[in-house]
């Protein structure tokens, strides 16, 4: 054996784990995922955002049960709590806050605001999540196909992306809303005014105009991963195309897909609100964050609490999701491929 000890490098092995010398666990490597988790946990702001997002999801999931068991009551009218002489404003200070109604009641109808926004979280989450999943699945699949195959396939998908992105989507969606909702009502159970067809139309539109952005990002990622030398090394070792795609390239795409996911969610939560403001989407009495916001907008000065509650909630959720996405990107991205 001619390899002498002099070959050993005088470089210090970077030890990101910070484990004490001689620790047995030191020998076991930390996978990039575990490392990213560690980095993420040390990032306080992202952890706060993560907790907020987790609470949001928990609240959204629990709302239907709370409604079922009568804890939340988003639809009952309590008109005795409003004062017709002031145009239906809630009786009492701060929008009628009381033990019964911790965030007060809705003007005119007297419905419980806490119940409405809480239950509204569920529908917002349902819409944003389905739309995000659809956009990501279609976008990622098409982006991966485009990036992998290149040539005319890539060119065709690229044109489709450009075409979709150049559509005046908001206008389209408004102009086609009644036809679209009717179409959804024909396919899905429910009538023209029921939540399901209305929500499905919003999901459809968000996903339809959302996938190209995802596809573009993922295609770029595939191209950049494909350029790295470890792919050439795999080719040289005689790896099959299958192996190269699934074992070498795909594992490097989960991180960007996850980041795109966490950054698309807040975009769609606010998009739902914006669409509700334009009167597209699920209509009252079924609450969504968007339609509660829409009905509150007229009371920005007369009933500030009612106006403030949904707007503030949307802001908190959107900001938290964005912080979470940024934190994930920072945690997943760094030196693993310097």
């Amino acid at each position: 054996m001619t390899v002498q000890a002099s070959n050993l490098e005088s470089e210090q092995l970077p030890d990101p784990s910070g484990a004490p010398e001689g620790d047995v666990s030191k020998l076991a490597g930390k996978s990039p995922t575990r490392l990213a988790l560690g980095r993420f946990r040390r990032d306080k702001l992202s952890m706060v955002a993560f907790v907020v997002v987790a609470l949001y999801i928990l609240a959204a999931l629990s709302a239907p049960f709370l409604v079922k068991f009568g804890v939340l009551d988003p639809t009952s009218f309590n008109q005795e709590l409003t004062d017709p002489s002031t145009g239906g404003l809630p009786i009492g200070k701060l929008g009628g806050i009381s033990w019964e109604h911790p965030l007060g009641v809705e003007p005119q109808t007297g419905r419980d605001v806490l119940s409405r926004v809480w239950y509204g979280l569920t529908f917002s989450l349902a819409i944003a999540l389905t739309a995000t999943i659809l956009a990501i699945v279609f976008g990622a699949v098409l982006g991966i196909i485009a990036g992998f195959s290149g040539g005319w396939v890539d060119a065709t998908i690229g044109r489709a992306i450009d075409l979709t992105l150049s559509f005046p989507s908001t206008l389209m969606l408004l102009a086609l809303s009644s036809i679209g909702i009717q179409l959804m009502a024909d396919i899905l159970p429910g009538t023209f005014s029921d939540p399901l067809p209305n929500g499905a139309y919003v999901v459809f539109v968000l996903a339809l105009f959302g996938w190209p952005g995802v596809a573009r990002i993922i295609r770029g990622q595939v191209l950049s991963v494909r350029e790295r030398e470890f792919v050439d090394a795999a080719v040289l070792l005689g790896a099959s195309r299958r192996r190269i795609y699934f074992k070498e390239i795909l594992p490097n795409l989960w991180a960007p897909i996850l980041v795109v996911f966490t950054l698309t969610m807040p975009a769609y939560i606010s998009a739902e609100a914006a669409l509700s403001y334009l009167n597209v989407g699920i209509k009252p009495p079924t609450p969504t964050l968007g339609n509660v916001l829409r009905s509150s907008i007229n009371y920005s000065s007369a009933d500030f609490i009612f106006f403030f509650t949904p707007a503030f909630l949307i802001m908190i959720i959107v900001v938290s999701f964005n912080l979470l996405g940024d934190g994930l990107r920072d945690a997943l991205d760094p030196k693993t491929h310097r």
């Binding site: 490597g29 996978s31 990039p32 790295r228 030398e229 470890f230 050439d232 090394a233 795999a234 040289l236 070792l237 005689g238 790896a239 099959s240 192996r243 074992k247 070498e248 594992p251 490097n252 693993t336 491929h337 310097r338």
Partner: peptide, 28 residues
């Protein structure tokens, strides 16, 4: 076989050293 210029892009960050070096044995 080939040794690449950039040691930072020539190893797949998602694979352990064992699977990187063992890959050719598994493939062939």
């Amino acid at each position: 076989q080939m040794i690449f210029q950039d040691p930072y892009t020539s190893l797949n960050p998602r694979h352990s050293v064992g699977s990187i070096i063992g890959a050719p044995l598994a493939i062939h």
